[in-house]
Design a binder for these strands. Structure first.
Lengths: 223, 223
DNA sequence: GAGGTTAGTGACAGCCACTGACAATTGACA
DNA sequence: TGTCAATTGTCAGTGGCTGTCACTAACCTC
């Protein structure tokens, strides 16, 4: 009866090492900076060999983005779960907001949410990580585009709308994240607020004239 | 009188090495792949020391993106040169199309345009390069957002519209580039056509309902 | 519970991108 | 032509990452 609840000593030991490495890595990255932290320092903190680190994580980057992968697949699932009568962009909007609000339960099993949220600041301030983050986002967007296309009964290779819609949405999310990640308030409430205000700014931003409709645009101001 | 036209032997020698390194690097990257090409191979082809390569280029990546930097600043200049009565998105649209059409004169002084265009395929097919490409694009977008904000007399830090508009535009351009770069036809005509069709798909993609307006959406189909 | 099997680890050697330091070389210029 | 300064080659070293191999400890069977 305990094979399901207790996965065996070997497996538990592995899990402990994986967790310890992740935590040590993130804490070192956040205190000393990503590039100034060597793998040797991480493994020294956990007291395993350098080789062991690379058996658990493909590299330093994978450690940084470990929890992000979890969050990303939750987001994709959330999009899939949206009612089919919702407009595509509305479904995406609800899915991200839902994802952010549920980030606690999603991440806390692995590391303190605080640590996860702080990785965004690390990513935004480290060019190499930021680049990887964008690439990973692009991969998620490709997946989302396929989901949207399926929802709408379209072929993602002949109709540009699914990818375009997702790209528009993703572009706005990047701006939002960046503003949030480079700011001081890394609370979930803050990202929630910024997400809403930026998504609401899409239609005004696409308007022909910006200068005359001051009321509409100014109302979407941020900060 | 010849300081301007003939920059001296030393300078010419440097330029020759810089060009030779760039060409050798790109040709090796394109034939063997980016990661399978070592810096030693590049410098061996040009017959200089490895150290010399790093004096001209900060790393392998910088060589790949050398011409892209030129193209990017031409694009930014083109946006700046657009008439101020043009709507922001229209100005961006015209500037990119203009940029692509003039890519020949812009790049040919450095390397054959053919080589430059092929680097897009390399970038799209090499995750590390793709990531860097996205980061660089994000930097350009930030610059463009400031230009747009200035054009419209807005503060980029309080009004979200400049960054949002540029992010929307940039998102669509990424999708376009990716489709083009992973396809077979890497002609300027092809990217021009894809750019137009994708930008035209933005409004339909933002529509509430996709299923009913089949005529509008299907007309924007690609390929 | 002894003994074989196998997964996981440490130790070591090595590749490659990249950097700093210093000496050798070679245009530039008087 | 000799001096100065810019460029280059050489060398040594760091750090991320990988392959290999022997060893240990968990697991499994009888």
């Amino acid at each position: 009866m305990e094979t399901a609840s207790r996965p065996g000593l070997r497996e538990r030991k592995k899990q402990r090492i994986r967790d310890a490495l992740l935590r040590a890595a993130l804490e070192l990255f956040l205190t000393q900076g990503y590039e100034r932290t060597t793998v040797d320092e991480i493994t020294a903190a956990v007291d395993v060999s350098q080789r062991t680190f690379f058996r658990y994580y493909a590299g330093k980057e994978e450690a940084v983005f470990f929890t992000h992968s979890v969050a990303a697949s939750h987001f994709v699932d959330a999009v899939r779960a949206r009612p089919r009568d919702e407009a595509p962009l509305e479904a995406l909007r609800q899915a991200v907001l839902q994802g952010w609000d549920g980030i606690g339960e999603t991440i806390e099993r692995i590391i303190p949410v605080e640590l996860h949220l702080r990785t965004y600041q690390l990513i935004e301030s480290t060019p190499a990580l930021f680049a990887t983050h964008l690439r990973r986002s692009a991969e998620v967007e490709e997946e989302i585009a396929r989901v949207i296309a399926e929802r709408e009964g379209l072929d993602v290779d002949t109709d540009p709308r699914p990818r375009v819609a997702v790209a528009v949405f993703g572009g706005v999310m990047r701006v939002t994240e960046r503003l949030w990640g480079t700011g001081e308030d890394i609370s979930v409430a803050a990202i929630h607020r910024l997400t809403v205000s930026h998504l609401d700014a899409v239609r005004p931003a696409l308007a022909e004239k910006w200068r005359t409709d001051g009321a509409d645009g100014a109302s979407a101001a941020v900060n």
